[in-house]
Simulated assay, not measured.
Amino acid sequence: MDILLISEYILIIALVIFMLAAVRIITHRTIAMGLIGSATFSLAISVLLLTVGAIYEIEFYKDIALALLILGVVGTIAFSMALRRN
C-alpha cells in the first residue's frame, strides 16, 4: 500500500464523519440551518464520489459529481430566493 491510497482512505473516513455532522445540522429546527446542512451534505457526497471513483476506477464519476455540485448550488440559491420572498 502506498501513501496515496492510505491518505485516500483517511479522507473517506473524514468525509463520512463530515456527512454525519451535516445530517445533524440538517435536523435543526430553522430553515436556514437545513439549507446549510443540505448544501454541506451534497458537497461531501461529491467529494466522496470523486475519491471513491479515483480509487476503484469507476466510469463517469467526474460527470456525476460535477452535476451534483452544480445542481446543489442552483438548488440552494433557488431555495434561498424563494425563502427571501416570503
Score class of each variant (00 low, 15 high):
1 M>L: 03
1 M>F: 01
1 M>P: 00
1 M>R: 03
2 D>M: 02
2 D>K: 00
3 I>V: 09
4 L>I: 13
6 I>S: 02
7 S>T: 12
7 S>M: 12
7 S>V: 09
7 S>L: 15
8 E>V: 07
8 E>F: 12
9 Y>A: 05
9 Y>Q: 06
9 Y>R: 06
9 Y>H: 07
9 Y>K: 06
10 I>P: 00
10 I>W: 00
10 I>G: 00
11 L>P: 00
11 L>G: 06
11 L>D: 06
11 L>C: 08
12 I>E: 00
12 I>F: 03
13 I>V: 14
13 I>C: 05
13 I>E: 01
14 A>V: 11
14 A>K: 01
15 L>A: 00
16 V>T: 13
16 V>E: 02
17 I>W: 10
17 I>P: 04
18 F>W: 05
19 M>G: 11
19 M>V: 05
19 M>D: 03
19 M>R: 02
20 L>T: 11
20 L>E: 10
21 A>D: 03
22 A>H: 08
24 R>G: 05
25 I>A: 06
26 I>M: 15
26 I>F: 11
27 T>F: 13
29 R>T: 13
29 R>W: 04
29 R>K: 14
31 I>R: 14
32 A>H: 09
32 A>W: 08
33 M>S: 15
34 G>V: 07
34 G>Y: 07
34 G>N: 13
34 G>C: 08
35 L>D: 01
36 I>G: 01
36 I>W: 14
37 G>N: 09
37 G>E: 08
37 G>H: 09
38 S>W: 10
38 S>T: 15
39 A>V: 03
40 T>M: 15
40 T>W: 09
41 F>V: 08
41 F>C: 06
42 S>E: 04
42 S>D: 04
42 S>F: 08
43 L>H: 11
43 L>C: 14
43 L>I: 12
43 L>Y: 14
44 A>D: 05
45 I>K: 01
45 I>H: 02
45 I>W: 02
45 I>A: 13
46 S>P: 05
47 V>M: 11
47 V>D: 01
48 L>W: 06
48 L>M: 14
49 L>N: 08
49 L>I: 15
50 L>K: 03
50 L>T: 12
51 T>A: 12
51 T>S: 13
52 V>C: 05
52 V>Y: 09
52 V>L: 15
53 G>I: 03
53 G>V: 03
53 G>H: 04
54 A>Q: 12
54 A>W: 07
55 I>N: 02
55 I>E: 03
56 Y>M: 08
56 Y>W: 12
56 Y>G: 04
56 Y>C: 06
57 E>F: 03
58 I>L: 12
58 I>A: 11
59 E>Y: 10
59 E>D: 15
60 F>W: 09
62 K>W: 12
62 K>P: 05
64 I>H: 01
64 I>L: 11
64 I>E: 04
65 A>W: 07
66 L>G: 08
66 L>T: 14
66 L>K: 09
67 A>H: 04
70 I>K: 01
70 I>H: 01
72 G>T: 05
72 G>L: 04
72 G>M: 03
73 V>H: 01
73 V>C: 04
74 V>T: 11
75 G>S: 14
75 G>D: 02
76 T>K: 03
76 T>A: 11
76 T>L: 15
76 T>Y: 14
77 I>T: 04
78 A>Y: 07
79 F>Q: 02
79 F>S: 06
80 S>V: 14
80 S>P: 00
80 S>F: 07
81 M>I: 12
81 M>E: 01
82 A>G: 08
82 A>L: 10
83 L>K: 03
85 R>N: 05
86 N>P: 02
